[in-house]
Computed example of a mutant assay.
Amino acid sequence: MQDQAASLRRLTARAGRAPSFAFVGSEKAGVSTVVTELAQGLAHAGHRPLVVDCTLGQVLCRRLGVPTTATLESRMTHPGGLDEMMATTRHGVQLVNLYARPEERALFSAQLWLRLGSEFAALERDTSLLLVDVPSMLTDPVPASVADNIVLVLSPAADSITTAYANIKRLAGYGRQRFNVLVNRARHLEEARELFTRLSAVTSEFLAVSLRWVGFVPADNAVRRSHTLHRPLQEAFPDSEAAIAFSQLAAVMPQWDSPDIARTDTGFMDLLIAASRDWAEAEGASLR
């Protein structure tokens, strides 16, 4: 299995691929909103962002105001290509739905893996950055573990720091040591800084990891109104405080790229499926 996976990855590898950023947070942290709005800001700035949805429920389609798509898991039972898993907004943000349960990803045939991996590699060639909305680390840690960069999304919600610490600890078990921290829905800068300081204090006491502050987004009722309209915030309410913050963060987001290890040429989908097979084998071994 390892030899086959290595051969497939070599076939679809390419140099200079776009950096990937996995966004991780608690259920109430607003991760999907952060992903879509940063992608929108990147597109406005002239970048070519690719949003990768690894979560159940097609939330990102609603946030971006595009039709729902096929998922990666559906390709196992319904023939079709990557184009059926994609949508593009009128502002140039591309979305691809790579949702599949980890145990299903592990069962992908070599033929299907090679075909979709090759199509995805071609898509990556035309992309500036990949923004990945990942599922709960408790149920599926694989998408976050294979991304180049981790962005922890904090919020003032009661469980935010507890969940962030648990996510850091789990990802540290996969060898991840560097974490970008973005605070969302903060009332003001002081509150955002306080949340970051509290998380830093907890992690520095128990874990050998590095946290980097990258900014914050203020709490803004315009975000909820944009959700109701099924339109991105920066399109519906471009002068709102949160929209301006997202635009400013998107302008510097490429500078957040600082992976734990040197970036390989292997594409994100190939890493995702290969790691899912490793995960399934490890989970199976732990149950025996």
Rank of each mutant, 00 (worst) to 15 (best):
E103K: 04
M86K: 00
G284C: 12
W279E: 05
Q248D: 14
F206N: 09
Q111T: 13
R225I: 04
L272H: 13
T197E: 01
L129K: 00
R62V: 00
G57D: 06
L8E: 02
V24R: 04
R224M: 15
M137K: 07
A243M: 10
P156I: 09
A274N: 11
A186Y: 02
W113C: 11
I161M: 07
L287H: 10
D133P: 00
R48A: 14
V31W: 04
R9Q: 14
R105Q: 14
V134D: 02
D3L: 10
L56V: 13
G16I: 03
A15F: 01
E194W: 09
A157T: 04
Q2F: 07
L152S: 05
T33D: 03
L152D: 04
L8S: 05
W213M: 04
A147I: 04
A121T: 04
C54W: 05
P143R: 15
G16R: 02
L199W: 10
T12Q: 06
L98T: 03
W113K: 06
I161K: 13
V223Y: 10
G57M: 03
G80T: 13
R231E: 07
F21Q: 03
H47R: 15
H227M: 02
P232N: 12
S286N: 06
V252P: 14
D278A: 03
R224F: 09
S160W: 00
H227C: 03
I273R: 07
P135N: 01
I150L: 13
S136T: 14
E281Q: 10
R17P: 00
G30D: 02
A39F: 05
A18V: 01
A110S: 05
R125C: 06
H47K: 07
N180Q: 13
S247Q: 09
V93E: 15
S26D: 11
H91Y: 07
E281L: 12
T77P: 00
P141T: 01
V34R: 01
R9I: 12
V151R: 13
T163K: 12
S74N: 08
E281S: 09
L195N: 15
Q177P: 00
L233C: 03
E283W: 02
A219Y: 10
G92P: 12
A87V: 07
L11Q: 10
D265E: 08
E103L: 05
S26Q: 08
R63Q: 11
V183W: 10
L272R: 07
R90F: 05
G46K: 06
G215R: 00
E84W: 11
L82K: 14
K28T: 02
E37M: 04
D260Y: 03
F216Q: 09
F108E: 08
D257C: 10
A236R: 01
L249S: 04
D83N: 15
R224H: 15
D159G: 09
R9E: 08
D239V: 06
F23R: 11
L152W: 13
I150G: 11
T162M: 14
A274Y: 02
A262Y: 13
S109Q: 10
A39D: 01
P143L: 08
T55N: 15
M1P: 06
S74C: 09
S240N: 12
A15Y: 11
R193Y: 01
S258A: 15
W113M: 07
N184P: 13
H230M: 14
